[in-house]
């Protein structure tokens, strides 16, 4: 593996649920320290693509490579793969029976065998950086959506994953909370983390993306830098999608 190899690579990925083809021949490379943003209407396959990368769904055809290893090979240990990937879900998916600190340290302690004291030190440090240190002993249901999602972000990055998958993480938040979550994502980009995110926040996407992919009907219709895709979209459907968004005042 050389330094220029992508961290994550999708190769002709196909996924169908019964008759319905969700992803059709999707190829995509995610270079290290870069941010790839997936945009497109709901149901275009963004979430499925992320779920496939984390092996929450089994792909039907093609392959997904993580650091040069085919993770979709049936011989691969899926748990070992997931250890190297961080995921944040739209609905936070924090564990309601654990407090914030335990939510964050569950993975490090149980999977990575970090001693409790050390795991908690690391978690508190990250929480502190996000201004959440005071909430360490609170239970998720007592936090605001934005706080919950920031905790979920900490939970995803605490074990230093190779790549971070963010699945519409601001979709359930109001604009003010969106800002606080997205500023965390922006910090993560500054730190050089490799990320793939599906989002409807176009302004943010334009701002943070090194690479933008427009998905429609399970196909990457258009891909490029954010200047290319947002400034000069080539495909008719991309133009329509973006113009509808700007009409709605979201761009």
């Amino acid at each position: 593996m050389t330094a220029t190899d992508p961290v994550l690579r999708f190769e002709s990925v196909r996924k169908a649920f019964g008759e319905q083809v969700i992803l059709d021949d999707v190829s995509l490379e995610v270079p290290e320290h870069s941010v790839t943003v997936l945009i497109g209407a709901s149901g275009s396959g963004k979430s499925t693509l992320l779920r496939c990368a984390n092996l929450l769904e089994e792909i039907d055809d093609g392959a997904i490579w993580l650091d040069g290893e085919d993770i979709t090979d049936p011989r691969v240990d899926a748990d070992a793969v997931r250890r190297r990937i961080g995921v944040v879900f739209q609905a936070y998916n924090l564990f309601p029976h654990l407090n914030v600190l335990d939510n964050i340290t569950l993975g490090p302690r149980r999977v990575h065998r970090v001693p409790r004291a050390e795991a908690e030190r690391g978690a508190l440090e990250l929480l502190d950086r996000l201004g959440l240190a005071a909430k360490a002993k609170e239970y998720p249901d007592r936090l605001s959506g934005g706080q919950q999602q920031r905790v979920a972000l900490v939970r995803a990055i605490v074990s230093e994953p190779r790549v971070l998958l963010l699945d519409e993480i601001t979709a359930a938040l109001d604009p003010e909370l969106v800002t606080e979550v997205l500023s965390v994502v922006r910090d993560l980009k500054e730190q050089g983390r490799t990320m793939v995110l599906a989002t409807h926040e176009m302004a943010f996407a334009r701002d943070v993306a090194d690479q933008v992919c427009f998905l429609a009907d399970g196909v990457i219709l258009e891909r490029g830098t954010s200047a290319q895709v947002f400034g000069d979209p080539q495909h008719e459907r991309t133009r329509r999608f973006l113009s509808r968004l700007s009409e709605a005042g979201r761009l």
Binding site: A16, G18, V21, G218, V219
Partner: peptide, 23 residues
Amino acid sequence: MSGADVDSESADPVMERGPYAPS
């Protein structure tokens, strides 16, 4: 395996490609 019975005719209408054949 899921998807094994996928209709190989259901290619995407947007892209002008042949029908899907398993690799």
